[in-house]
């Protein structure tokens, strides 16, 4: 049993990971995904190697064709000799906490290609369209030298925009014929897009969707030129070369500088929040109970109570 006390095994795993062994990569992702005790050492070893990969996020409504489009995009990347890591997120059941991870079905043509490494993860109740550890899994792919790391969100509704924090380039995939749904996703999802793709362009209503997206962009005056609307048929590959070109040119033209400090702060905030949550919810501590009672009596506001607990119970 590999436990946190087995630091030799962790050192060995980290060494094999940095050598690029696929089995070690898979295992390291498991440790990070499950936030085991080995995670710390893995994250520490990978930090100095980050920042080389291009990170592309794909999001959009369920059934819009994200997985199929990603598969077609991977085909273009492989023809250009790029190595690819994929993190694909599917929802967890709110009842059983189980999940069906089925995005790989659409990526079947790459299943024996050693240049493509796909990992499916369950969202495990995390909101925002990705799992809590997705960003850290992306970092591991980056650290082992994947040229392009692709993140596929769960089928997204309006506010699943967390992928924007991770990805250099955000591709929002829209399906034609959703009519009002296009309007509905306007406020959240469409705003994070660097590229809007109308997939299933072989369907009759696709041009209407393209027109309404372009009309929506016309109403924006800030970054209209920056956002492009492309048409694809992922199942046949139509338009996918152009999508790949657009992603690449956006990256080289104005690749957003991913400051390590910003990224590290985000991870820190997540881990700190989790430490606080675990401590406040699960620790048997009469002082915390006393603060709870004070809140219940109305003697203390939630805000002051939280501040006090942070300073007194967690500041040690």
């Amino acid at each position: 049993m590999s436990t946190g006390s087995n630091s030799e095994a962790t050192t060995d795993l980290t060494a094999r990971l940095l050598r690029g062994e696929p089995a070690a990569l898979a295992r390291a992702i498991t440790e990070v995904e499950n936030e085991t005790t080995e995670m710390s050492a893995i994250l520490r070893a990978t930090q100095p190697r980050l920042g080389k990969a291009t990170i592309v996020g794909f999001t959009g409504a369920p059934g819009a064709g994200k997985s199929t489009l990603i598969s077609a995009y991977i085909k273009v990347l492989r023809a250009r000799d790029k190595t690819v890591g994929v993190v694909t997120v599917d929802p967890s059941s709110p009842f059983s906490r189980g999940a069906i991870l089925g995005d790989r079905i659409r990526m079947a043509e790459h299943t024996t290609d050693l240049g493509v490494f796909v990992r499916s993860v369950a969202a495990r109740g995390h909101l925002g369209g990705i799992s809590r550890t997705t960003a850290r899994i992306v970092d591991i792919f980056d650290a082992v030298g994947k040229d392009v790391v692709i993140v596929e969100t769960v089928g997204a509704g309006q506010s699943e925009v967390a992928v924007a924090e991770i990805a250099d380039i955000k591709v929002v995939v829209c399906a034609p014929g959703l009519g009002d749904d296009v309007q509905a996703i306007k406020a959240g999802l469409l705003e994070i897009a660097d590229i809007l793709v109308v997939n299933k362009h072989d369907l009759p209503s696709a041009d209407t969707t393209i027109r309404s997206l372009k009309a929506m962009l016309d109403l924006r005056n800030n970054n209209r030129d920056a956002v492009q609307v492309l048409a694809t048929v992922a199942t046949t590959g139509v338009g996918v070369n152009e999508l790949a070109e657009t992603i690449e040119s956006k990256c080289t033209m104005h690749r957003p500088t991913r400051s390590p400090r910003t990224r590290i702060r985000r991870v820190l905030a997540g881990i700190a929040g989790q430490i606080v949550e675990t401590h406040l919810q699960d620790t048997d501590d009469s002082a915390i109970d006393a603060v709870c009672d004070a809140v219940q009596r109305g003697d203390l506001s939630f805000e002051s109570a939280a501040q006090r607990l942070l300073a007194e119970r967690l500041g040690r």
Binding site: S92, S93, F95, S96, R97, G98, A99, I100, L101, G102, R104, I105, A108, T111, T112, S120, A122
Partner: peptide
Amino acid sequence: LRDAGMEVVYTGPWQEILA
């Protein structure tokens, strides 16, 4: 298995052994 709380990677038929 999903309903029993497991995370299930599902592929559909006709997979090669190496895949």
